[in-house]
Every structure is written in structure tokens, then in C-alpha cells.
Design a protein around this nucleic acid. Structure first.
Length: 125
DNA sequence: CGTGTGACCGGCG
DNA sequence: ACGCCGGCCACAC
């Protein structure tokens, strides 16, 4: 869980790490969106931050399946930031996700929402 | 410590 | 339907 603590030594877990954590939990064959992740982290109005965090995913020590994060339309907007322009699509296809015209096919169906899938506590049933 | 920027999103004309 | 514009927040310079 994200903590607002401000350690004096080093920032053990930053916003980036939180984002990476969520992205790593995206199951194979599913995709999520920047907005959904941002929403899960509490900053739903700042989906840009998530995307920006992904920009630093290259720097992350642990691999981050950034290919599973697309925009709300299911478009591979971040493919340009991969090593090659086709890498993102290739990785998704390896995951079993069909991509056509830079857009995830059946996106609505395989959409993975952390708010739902990682629901830690339900409001009152 | 001010400013710019970003792999976005939703609303409005 | 489509394009534009403002907002949001963390981080680098």
C-alpha cells in the first residue's frame, strides 16, 4: 500500500514503485489503462503521472510489463518508447493479446482493472 | 524554490 | 463525430 511517509534515508518506495507493482500484477493476456492504475493509486485525475512513471520503467531493476498498459481506447500509445516500434505489439502477441492497427482487439473484454481485481476491501455489501 | 513537462482523460463547443 | 483545451501531480533542471 502506498504510504505518505517521508523517510530520511532513501525513498524506499516511490510513486514509481507503486505503479510498477500494480503493472507487474497484470496477468498475462490482460491489459490495463493508465487511468485505471492512476485511479487505483488515488490520483485518478492524473493518469499522465502513470504514463510518466512508465517512462522510467526502463530504469527499474525489475522488469515491468509496460506493454500491458495502454490508454483508455486500448491504443498502444507508448509503443514509441520501446526499443523498437514493434516491440510492444510483439510482446502483447506473445501474451496472447491480439493487436490490430496499434489497438488491442477485444480490449473491453480483457481489460484488467486493479480497482476491481485487487479490491482489498469492499465498501459495505 | 520556480518552472516545465509528460506513454492521459474528460468535458465542451 | 471530432478537435481542442484545461487539469492533475511527481519529478528533473
Amino acid at each position: 500500500m502506498p504510504s505518505k511517509i517521508k523517510p530520511t534515508v532513501v525513498k524506499e518506495f516511490s510513486f514509481f514503485e507503486d505503479v510498477f507493482d500494480v503493472v507487474r500484477q497484470i496477468p498475462k493476456g490482460r491489459v490495463s489503462t493508465y487511468g485505471a492504475i492512476a485511479n487505483y493509486l488515488g490520483t485518478k485525475l492524473s493518469a499522465r503521472m502513470v504514463g510518466w512513471a512508465m517512462n522510467a520503467s526502463h530504469n527499474a531493476q525489475m522488469k515491468v510489463p509496460a506493454q500491458r498498459v495502454v490508454n483508455r481506447n486500448g491504443m498502444l500509445t507508448g509503443k514509441a518508447h520501446f526499443a523498437t516500434p514493434t516491440l510492444m505489439e510483439e510482446l502483447l502477441k506473445k501474451d496472447g493479446v491480439e493487436v490490430k492497427n496499434d489497438t488491442v482487439v477485444d480490449f473491453k473484454n480483457i481489460f484488467w482493472d486493479p480497482l476491481i481485481e485487487l479490491q482489498t476491501s469492499l465498501p459495505i455489501p
